[in-house]
Amino acid sequence: MLSATQRNWALSLPAFVIVGLLAVVPAVMMLASAFTSPDIEGFTLANFEKLWNSKLAFQAFWRTIRVAIIVTLITIVLGYPLAIGFLRAGPRMQSILLPMLVFPLMVSVVVRAYGWIVVLSPSGIFNQVLLGLGIVASPVDLLYSETAVILGESQLLLPYMVLSLMASLQKAESNLEEASMSLGANPVTTFFRIVIPISVPGLLTGTLLVFALALTAFATPLLLGGGRAPLLTTLIYSFAFTTFDWSAAAAVGLVLVILALAFVWLQRWVGQKVMKSYE
């Protein structure tokens, strides 16, 4: 007979060993290799110095943060009407809208990015509309730019924001709004004084989730930004497979991991704070 501890270890061991050997050990070894260089013996900060002096890496760093901020703002602006509209719709309408909101989450990221390639290409519908309306004289080259990456990532992450907002708005009773209106507040006042404050926990979780996912998105920026708008994630890939500078790739990886972990930590900290203030 096994003791309880032995049994728990036996149950945990397969997953522990496999995830440990395939995820934790390789990631730690790779991140540690950022402090080594083929030309220098022992510990070195040469790779980080190189990144610091590289215009490409510097731009990619700020672009990553800028894109994540803009994407988060776009998902907030588009997310509120969707979340509020969804909750105000009748049950029949909701049963149509929920699948439309969740289905894109299951669709391959490559397929969703390809959708934007089709829409934004010089002969695509976006340019046809602009040309047809006489807004531009010749097609706008939006593809392979930071704008394309922002559009693609916003579409990718919008459902997460909407679902987070819905979760907190759902808890608030809609008669709170009715009360506000019947007590004489107009819809605008009601929106800013009632709806927004109620949605704060959802807004916070949505913001942190979308921001963290935007920081680490890979396929979308690779397809829509190409070499012209590299982010930290795509820079790792191009250092690894185009210039074969693996130590530099590891250094970029470490920067990305620090950013991502800082966010995970912030997420937990905010989560606890918000939980407490809303109990």
């Binding site: 680490t216 890979f218 994630t233 890939y237 690894a240 990886g253 991502a260």
Partner: peptide, 18 residues
């Protein structure tokens, strides 16, 4: 066991590849 959720997948991929 939950580490892969914390790290960017690109980092996990490049690490495993290394």
């Amino acid at each position: 066991v939950l580490t892969p959720l914390l790290l960017p997948i690109v980092v996990l991929g490049f690490g495993l590849f290394n």
